[in-house]
Design a binder for these strands. Structure first.
Length: 579
RNA sequence: CGGGGCGUAGCGCAGUCUGGUAGCGCAUCUGCUUUGGGAGCAGAGGGCCGGAGGUUCGAAUCCUCUCGCCCCGACCA
């Protein structure tokens, strides 16, 4: 491609709308432009990078035995009513009507559609296993789109759905997908980690997220420092059980705490440790109101609570509900003397606590010296808090660290949730109809590109890993009006094209500084500069994007293409050596 | 949905408090000079001041409503 013909509008200034580095750089490098909130146009440079990632995904998915299909993006409501998700999916599902007033939605995911396809076509155990994938635009009407392609409403996703005869067969498929995902993200040059994850509203039993480690990630991962355990904090069990305290029982008493609501305020005012305080939270859910208790220095984990309750919906109660359940106002509520019958769940860490402080359900008052069994009934105990640094690794009892991650892929064992709802069955060897056991496997394509940029950039711009770079090499002709330079550029351009590289010839009538800045900004891995030295010594200059000025080599023009090939080969080896 | 902020030239912003000729930088166009890290000088074009209504002799500026965008929270594959 010739730069003079390429639609590549770069921006010198930092765009005001962008918050995170990948978003800023993708705008500046002319990869994307925003159309509306959460909706982006892909320009040639951005599209090239997306296509590279898609190509890697296709190769690995095909190699793992999956087959590509393309499913409709607009989907009839009936299907979603059949699976029950028309009601349960919520406002993220963008619904619409056609001219006949029939209900449709834009596909945020394709379980329903793939089931509708497969249930008509697959009859026998002989047709299984089957694994189908597509690379499709999805739409999720996110409450708050942000960070550019990281969380947009319309986005490109690879989604695969597997169909197996039983759990054992699904295990094999799942493992194959897991391995394929590792290869895909390896090849994209990402520093990532597969972590145990919650299954969310998609449902199912086992699940792993593929997290790209980055400070700007929206998810938090709990990692063990000693073994390779890692899990989304939403899921990681908090195992430290405090030993029972054997202090003598104190008498329960009211303490005046005027205006002291938060844990810090109350414990600071009373001069006690947050560990001695029981924090009370009221939730509403489809299973009714819930009172959750955690220690003052711990945080509630709503995902765990939701799983425990088997609730579809769980949210912090509003002030009205809080006072109707407890009789108190937020900041002064406690589990003693709750109104009516309400399910009370205490975190495991509270089992052994004695003489604790908690809200009195009366404004400006707390209770101290409170004890289970005497002042209030023993609640049911469970693990409902977020894991902390002082908890042990659930696998090896080592220390836990926290990292932020960007979720670029997610694999689920769905089981028979959808096949039962949507009647996707096969006949086994005995002629008995059984529900097909399913798995599903997603990769955010745009998010993968954004994550790669998040991990690979410097103050001058993007530093693309070669496999997903829009161009592998740029030839910067310093002065295009100079015939010797320009003809050398053309010749090298032809050589590199012939060798099969994605090469960009910067033939613009721009000053050299502009060309260098744009080459750096767009992150092209290798730059070949053709300047004065072509006339004096017949030499050009090769510089990797990762190198400073010092690292350049200066081969003769005729050797440049071969040297570029050698450099790329070395880069590929370095890449695999890193793993 | 709650809280906060912003909509003025293609982009980034000032001007709004205190009403009176719509500005600056970058970009664009022309000319000359320059040519290895986002050039210099001279000149030019470009605006329904997000939209609607109101107050006023007069509104970018004050008031009301509305639309859009961004941030924090809530929520969420």
């Amino acid at each position: 491609m010739r730069y003079s013909k390429l639609f590549l509008p770069t921006i010198k200034e930092v765009p005001a709308e962008a918050e995170v580095i990948s978003h800023k750089l993708m705008l500046r490098a002319g990869m994307i432009r925003k159309l509306a909130s959460g909706l982006y146009s892909y320009l040639p440079l951005g599209l090239r990078s997306l296509k590279k990632v898609e190509g890697i995904i296709r190769q690995e998915m095909n190699a793992a035995g999956a087959q590509e299909v393309l499913l409709p993006m607009v989907q009839p409501a009936e299907l979603w009513q059949e699976s029950g998700r028309w009601e349960h999916y919520g406002k993220e599902l963008l619904r619409m009507k056609d001219r006949h007033e029939r209900d449709y939605c834009l596909g945020p995911t394709h379980e329903e559609v793939i089931c509708a396809l497969v249930r008509h076509e697959v009859r026998s155990y002989r047709d299984l296993p089957l694994n189908l994938y597509q690379i499709q635009t999805k739409f999720r009407d996110e409450i708050r789109p942000r960070f550019g392609l990281m969380r947009s409403r319309e986005f490109i996703m690879k989604d695969a759905y597997s169909f197996d005869v039983d759990d054992e067969a699904l295990d094999k498929t799942y493992q194959a997908m897991y391995r394929a995902y590792c290869r895909i993200f390896d090849r994209c040059g990402l520093n990532f980690r597969p972590v145990e994850a919650d299954t969310g509203s998609i449902g199912g039993h086992a699940s792993h997220e593929f997290m790209v480690i980055a400070d700007t990630g929206e998810d938090i991962i709990a990692c063990c420092g000693s073994c390779d355990y890692s899990a989304n904090v939403e899921l990681a069990p908090a195992l430290s059980d405090e030993p029972g305290q054997d202090a003598p029982d104190e008498a329960m008493r009211r303490v005046h705490t005027p205006g002291k609501r938060s844990v810090e305020e109350v414990t600071g005012y009373l001069g006690i440790s947050p560990k001695c305080l029981v924090k009370t939270l009221v939730f509403t859910s489809d299973k009714g109101p819930i009172v959750a208790l955690v220690r003052g220095d711990h945080n509630i984990n709503e995902v765990k609570l939701k799983r425990l309750l088997r609730a579809e919906r769980l949210e912090l109660a509003d002030n009205l509900t809080v006072s109707s359940v407890t009789g108190g106002e937020a900041g002064f509520i406690g589990p003693v003397g709750l109104k009516g019958r309400v399910r009370v769940i205490g975190d495991n860490a509270l089992k052994g606590i004695k003489n604790f402080v908690t809200g009195a359900n009366e404004s400006d008052w707390h209770l101290a010296g409170v004890n289970w069994g005497r002042d209030l009934a023993w609640p049911e105990f469970s693990d409902i808090r977020l894991i902390t640094k002082s908890d042990p690794c659930p696998r090896c009892k080592g220390g836990i660290e926290f990292k932020r991650g960007i979720e670029v892929g997610h694999v689920f064992k769905l089981g028979t949730k959808y096949s039962e709802a949507l009647d996707v069955t096969y006949l086994d060897e005995a002629g008995v109809a059984r529900p097909i056991v399913m798995g599903c496997y997603g990769i955010g394509v745009g998010r993968t590109v954004a994550a790669a940029i998040e991990q690979n950039h410097d103050e001058n711009g993007i530093i693309f890993p070669r496999p997903i770079a829009p161009f592998e090499c740029v030839i910067s002709v310093v002065d295009v009006t100079d015939e010797a330079m320009m003809s050398a550029g053309e010749r090298l351009y032809g050589d590199l094209l012939e060798s099969g590289f994605d090469v960009l010839l910067d033939d613009r009538r721009e000053r050299p500084g502009v060309k260098f800045k744009d080459a750096d900004l767009t992150g092209i891995p290798l730059r070949i500069t053709i300047g004065r030295r072509i006339k004096e010594e017949g030499r050009v200059e090769l510089k990797l994007r990762t190198q400073g000025k010092g690292g350049a080599t200066s081969p003769l023009l005729d050797d440049a293409a071969a040297e570029a090939a050698v450099i790329f080969k070395a880069m590929d080896h370095m890449g695999s050596a890193l793993k």
